[in-house]
Amino acid sequence: MHKFFSNRRLVFIVVVLVLAFGLMGGSVALRKRRATPPLIQQFGNDVVGIANDIVAVPVNAVHNGLASFSDLLNTYSENRKLKQQVSDLAQVKVRDETLAHENKQLKKELKVNHTMTDYSTINAAVITRSPSSWQKQIIINKGQTSGVKKDMPVMSAGGLVGRVVEVNQTNSKVELLSDTSESANRFAIQLDGEGGKTINGIITGYDSETNELVMGQVTSKAKVKKGTKVTTSGLGGITPKGLYVGKVSRIGKDDYGLAQKIYIKPAADFNDVNIVTVPELNS
């Protein structure tokens, strides 16, 4: 044991520790500030992303095959349920189109060009997920070349799932809403309280015990009903307005008993994300 901490080894260990923490701290800071990672990192990630397909494509194919087999077993009962919804949906769709058309005409009348609800979408497939318990990240197969930019929101089948945190040329990293780190996922959201009052707020955290998003520091005193739909509010200027987040599951008080704390059951399953949509504001 005396020899274990010999001078040279001690110096070596200290240097490695300092370097490692310097790099970690530096890259975290760099990541928050810059729109894209350094070129060398981009290049490396693009190459690795392509190599990843060699393993990811067969694994995903097997998984999709098994999933479609189990889907097949549920098809009959699902089909009966869905048929009822389809007839409703056609009506909703037509109405939606009419309203969108009317909205466009009215905007023209008022000479408003683009608002926070005008967005186009980029579709991407999920390649892989970070094998980590601290960073809930997925990697998608679209990057700068397809128009993905840092901080864009990411939607899955059900609703909002996360935000783009790093963009390479051909792939990008998405931080899921279930990530609990301090810098993660502050989406501006809104919901309708009783009496038609709009309650604005931000997602302040994620409760992993119950799988609920937390909307904290809600100063509005308006009453909120369970089951109210929550959408993004478009405040902040990067995320379009009206992306579905989830439904209110319960309402509590914050630690000091002053403000409301609204718990939201997310619409998307963060553990079952295969295809994502990245909405991009038209400007």
Binding site: A56, V59, N60, T128, R129, P131, D272
Partner: peptide
């Protein structure tokens, strides 16, 4: 790469 792929495919089990 299997580490990542398994984490994705079995996410509902792993996480």
């Amino acid at each position: 790469f299997l580490d990542g792929s398994l984490s994705k495919v079995w996410a509902s089990l792993f996480f």
